[in-house]
């Protein structure tokens, strides 16, 4: 299994040598996945907050639904988004199939149930006095919701980190709607899949190693954010 060591040293080489193609891949992966997580979070965090905080008919069903959606295979999500964005699909007119936008859309769809489920879990276990306390101190309903979020900040940021982890590591949806176009929609995972199919196992390992380094950087940044968000 020479490719473990070979991959590791080659990964370091890629990092140090500033191979422009690899840096392009890293930058695209980061941009696509971060955008997808932020887009998903814009919908998932408020939704998770409402589902977790409010009592209403069908709440349990929604919680079960979102937990079930976590089991959605990425390839199926890719297929659905492909169907939507394809020329004959309902959103075909946008013409974004095989562009980074399509990958952002697919990854946002992937991250959405995960972030929602984790935010629900975070908020449900939170002390139910947070919102009312904020209201008695003069908060608007929005500000009270923000206070709830802030009290659950560790879990909410963990939800975002989990969402990021899910989308930057997935390959099925990205390859299907992005097309793995060189210099354009080739991300870490689609490049790894390609290198592996070519038999370039060491290069695949090297890219995997590089991906970990990028993920580490993102998680360190989010940890910093967490420390400052009080």
């Amino acid at each position: 299994m020479d490719f473990f060591l070979g991959g590791l040293t080659r990964g370091l080489g890629l990092l140090i040598n500033l191979d422009p193609e690899v840096y392009g891949i890293a930058w695209l992966s980061l941009r696509v996945s971060l955008s997808a997580v932020i887009l998903a979070a814009l919908a998932a965090v408020p939704l998770g907050l409402v589902i977790g905080q409010r009592e209403f008919l069908g709440k349990r069903f929604l919680v079960v639904l979102f937990n079930t959606l976590l089991a959605l295979p990425t390839v199926v999500v890719g297929l659905v988004v492909y169907g939507l964005l394809s020329y004959h699909g309902p959103l075909g007119g946008m013409g974004i199939l095989y562009t980074p936008w399509a990958m952002v859309a697919a990854q946002a769809v992937l991250a959405f149930p995960l972030i929602t489920a984790l935010v629900i879990a975070a908020v449900i276990t939170l002390d139910n006095r947070v919102g009312p306390t904020a209201l008695t101190l003069g908060a608007t309903p929005m500000q009270a919701a923000w206070a709830v979020l802030r009290e659950a900040r560790f879990a909410v940021l963990a939800a975002l980190a989990a969402g990021f982890g899910r989308v930057i590591t997935e390959v099925g949806a990205a390859i299907m709607v992005g097309g793995n176009i060189r210099h354009y929609t080739r991300t870490f995972t689609t490049a790894i899949a390609l290198e592996t199919s070519k038999g370039e196992f060491a290069q695949g390992m090297a890219l995997g190693f590089f991906l970990l380094v990028v993920a580490l950087a993102v998680n360190l940044a989010s940890h910093q954010l967490q420390a400052r968000w009080k």
Binding site: S86, I181, T185
Partner: peptide
Amino acid sequence: HYIPVGTGKALAIAKRCD
């Protein structure tokens, strides 16, 4: 821009005008 897939899939993509 080339999309590297198998022949069957390449034709399927083309059939959908993609």
